[in-house]
């Protein structure tokens, strides 16, 4: 039978909670093994970053939704953290198969990678709850993308880099959620990545200095 928008949103929330019920909000044994395989063990940096970003997220959530909602924000961050570690493990397994390496020291010590991945996980959680506001009444609009970029002071260009790999690594994402992440991707490509403070301009400048690489395609007739 056709679902009302609120019923559809409640089902999406339930589905997300079922998927994440068996996930941990701390690194699993498999993930910890990847961390220990690194030239520089990133475990402490990762867990401290999650704690710090969790405080930022909860504070900003409370600012947007009301102070009484801080605990709800904290619960959503916990869900996002579980998704973050789950997707990270899936990504590393995939990279290990693809590259035949086990030492991901550079990647796992890259703050931009972790912040982007956590932001993407939280975007999934926030978008899932958007239909009901979590209270079954109001629709949240203030937490819409790119809100999470501002909360984490994350550059859109870096966030963009994890989207496709995130979708590949998490098979439980619904069609609607994949479309939402695609929408975020398009917003970044078409607008946010071209704002004045974007690192994209410096990268283009560097690329120009390195000289022409591939031949440009001839103009289409």
């Amino acid at each position: 039978p056709p679902q009302t928008p609120v019923r559809a949103a409640m089902n999406s929330i339930q589905q997300l909670r079922v998927v994440l019920a068996s996930a941990s909000d701390a690194p699993s044994e498999v993930l910890s093994a990847y961390f220990k395989n690194c030239t520089v063990d990133p475990t402490q940096e990762i867990t401290q970053r999650v704690r710090r970003l969790g405080e930022h997220f909860s504070q900003r959530f409370a600012q947007a939704m009301g102070q009484r909602c801080m605990e709800i924000g904290s619960q959503r961050f916990t869900l996002g953290t579980r998704l973050y570690y789950r997707v990270m493990e899936s990504m590393l397994k995939s990279e290990e198969r693809r590259l035949s390496v086990q030492n991901f020291s550079k990647l796992l010590n890259d703050s931009a990678f972790h912040t982007s991945l956590l932001a993407c996980a939280l975007e999934v959680v926030t978008a899932t709850y958007r239909g009901t506001g979590g209270f079954g009444v109001a629709v949240e609009t203030d937490l819409s993308f790119p809100w999470i970029l501002d909360v984490f002071q994350l550059v859109a260009y870096d966030f963009y880099k994890v989207i496709e790999s995130f979708i590949k690594a998490e098979p439980s994402l619904s069609r609607d959620m994949i479309k939402h992440l695609e929408h975020c991707e398009h917003l970044v490509m078409e607008s946010i990545a071209w704002r004045g403070d974007s690192p994209l301009f410096e990268l283009l400048h560097q690329a120009r200095e390195e000289g022409p690489g591939e031949q440009a395609e001839p103009p289409a007739t």
Binding site: M91, L99, K106, A112, E164, I167, I178
Partner: peptide, 21 residues
């Protein structure tokens, strides 16, 4: 079924995107 366009080529992944290859 979704119609998301996977743009990464063979041999491209998150390691390359973050200059960690």
């Amino acid at each position: 079924v979704h119609d998301y366009h996977f743009g990464l080529e063979e041999g491209e992944g998150v390691s390359e995107l973050f200059d960690c290859d």
